[in-house]
């Protein structure tokens, strides 16, 4: 890569304290949600981040927009390490990266009108003046394909799909460069999901946005992202261009995910390969976190944490015994 990426995440580790602790006692253990994750996103690119529940994908997204403080590692926007900045120093960077949450019922305050929801970022970040806000809000609604007359009412008057578009409009209010999309389509019906995906695709090409698209939906991610990162229990298993990942998954976990994905085009007589069961205990053994379920595990997997290595141009995998060799 010749130019530096817009977002660079380096060796990110996020941990949460566990155990109640007492009045003056510190909490005891900690739960590592994100474990040494690194990736970069180029300007105008959409990186898909897939993982199942409990993989830490939501935590990762929140860490990127500085809602969760990492224990270690750096999150650089245009080369500036955001994790090193104070709240005040962070202020000029906040408009540049925004997040769309999974459930618009949760992310839009039911006691706000749509206008208040859309102008809140402008007032908090002191963008423009009060007189221009309403026009800006109307313009934002227009950008996501909603009529202006929605402005006066609270969110509960609208359907799930409309609310999610309102949430996207709010994220666009500050004219961000990077949008973190945290499962923006997962609670929606198929037809609504398609509209949101189309909208996100259109917005990206129209506004030149950069996306970190977090989801468990392999179909959605392959529709939007040209490159996909696979997260397993806070551990980045594989990063590859979408087509490459679908055609030649190298990590056994990626292969299992794609095998389990129901498809319209596969014939019903096709053999669905057996998929190892998930579940098990945390924290994992010192080796690979997937070792307990991996059909290809070798002795080394149990003792040594696999490092990421390059298999093909921009195809990286963290596995001792990948499904495909280097090419």
């Amino acid at each position: 890569m010749s130019t530096s990426p817009l977002l660079a995440v380096e060796d990110l580790t996020v941990a949460f304290a566990t155990g109640a602790g007492g009045l003056l006692r510190r909490a005891r253990g900690s739960f590592v949600a994100i474990d040494g994750v690194s990736f970069g996103i180029d300007r105008g690119e959409c990186l898909g981040l897939i993982g199942e529940s409990g993989s830490g994908k939501t935590t990762l997204g929140r860490a990127v927009v500085q809602l969760v403080a990492p224990r270690e590692g750096r999150i650089c926007l245009d080369g500036v390490d955001l994790t090193a900045l104070s709240g005040r120093e962070l202020r000029p960077y906040r408009p540049r990266l925004q997040i769309v949450f999974q459930d618009p019922t949760e992310s839009l305050n039911p006691r706000f009108t749509i206008e208040e929801i859309l102008t809140e970022p402008l007032s908090l970040l002191r963008i423009g003046n009060r007189e221009g806000w309403r026009d800006r809000a109307a313009h934002l609604l227009d950008q996501v394909g909603l009529p202006e007359d929605l402005l006066g009412r609270p969110p509960r008057y609208y359907s799930g799909g409309q609310r999610q578009r309102i949430a996207i409009a709010r994220a666009l209010a500050t004219e961000p460069e990077l949008l973190v999309l945290d499962e923006p389509t997962s609670g929606l019906d198929v037809s609504m999901q398609a509209r949101i995906l189309n909208l996100l695709r259109d917005l990206q090409s129209r506004l030149g946005l950069t996306y970190l698209f977090i989801t468990h939906d392999l179909g959605a991610v392959s529709y939007l992202a040209r490159r996909i990162a696979v997260l397993y229990r806070g551990f980045l298993a594989e990063v590859a261009p979408t087509r490459e990942l679908i055609a030649h998954p190298a990590h056994p976990y990626t292969a299992a995910l794609f095998a389990a994905l129901p498809r319209l085009v596969r014939g019903r007589d096709a053999v669905i390969p057996s998929v190892p069961a998930l579940g098990g205990s945390w924290p994992p053994v010192p080796g690979c976190p997937y070792v307990g379920h991996c059909p290809r595990a070798v002795d080394r997997c149990r003792t040594e944490r696999p490092l990421r290595r390059l298999l093909a141009p921009s195809h990286e995998v963290a596995c001792h015994n990948p499904m495909v060799g280097p090419r």
Partner: peptide, 24 residues
């Protein structure tokens, strides 16, 4: 999430208490 969203826009504690929390 809506409080998190506001925090992401740099909302301070006083603002959150006055608007989001009080209204809720």
């Amino acid at each position: 999430d809506y409080v998190l969203a506001a925090r992401q826009y740099g909302a301070g504690t006083g603002y959150l208490a006055r608007t989001h929390l009080l209204r809720s």
